[in-house]
Design a protein around this nucleic acid. Sequence first.
DNA 1: TCTACTGCCTCGTTATACGAGGTATGATAA
DNA 2: TTATCATACCTCGTATAACGAGGCAGTAGA
Lengths: 111, 111
Amino acid sequence: MPLDRELLKGSIAVLILKLLSERDMYGYEIIQESLRRSDDAFEFKEGTLYPALHQLHKRGYLRSEWRTGESGKQRKYYSLTAVGRKAARRSEKEWFVFTKIVNAILSGANS
Amino acid sequence: MPLDRELLKGSIAVLILKLLSERDMYGYEIIQESLRRSDDAFEFKEGTLYPALHQLHKRGYLRSEWRTGESGKQRKYYSLTAVGRKAARRSEKEWFVFTKIVNAILSGANS
DNA sequence: TCTACTGCCTCGTTATACGAGGTATGATAA
DNA sequence: TTATCATACCTCGTATAACGAGGCAGTAGA
């Protein structure tokens, strides 16, 4: 069963912020890590991820820094700013509240 | 805490299909019922709901029928077609799968 | 009479996901 | 050596969506 494209919307930022709150990561790594944690169910598309990272950066949530690994390859590492850390906590909470509300409606709450 | 607008996306169809799988409803009633079940947290906007209903109708998921209540007011009732009933089950399942996957990433699964 | 609620609708704006395409490097296999 | 693959970054255009704002009309109540 493929992931419903529509459902993905809005969860992007939550996931990026959460992952970066655990450790600094570069874009490609975020994609791989999401695949790993979801047993290959959730694949960030590059056309989605990179613009999203730039937007979070523009909003002041992220810092970016080029680092060179032992392989000699350049990687752009992202880390959370103080503001970004707050946004990470807030967005995760919003996610839980939101799913709780939808589940309430789905389960026929207050019936 | 206001609902994150972005998170709402994609959950619209799931909720409409689920509500209509319980009983026939008219548009305005869907809005009221969502508010009631979510303790006023989830309000379908009319500019969102009516186009969504029309689209589901166009896809063959819904039937619509004008009925006159005892008040004399015309209401357009929607009900699920056979195809719509299948879509309702499928979309609800997709919702649970999707939230499970996101929660897995958020919780650091496979770490 | 005037306001509030019910009940339907459309249009324009804004945002977004992402497919498709591009560039460049390093590693591996033929 | 050469070709291919994985890594690693990016942008642009398209399609779609949410929804604010507006409009219409009937009913109820102050």
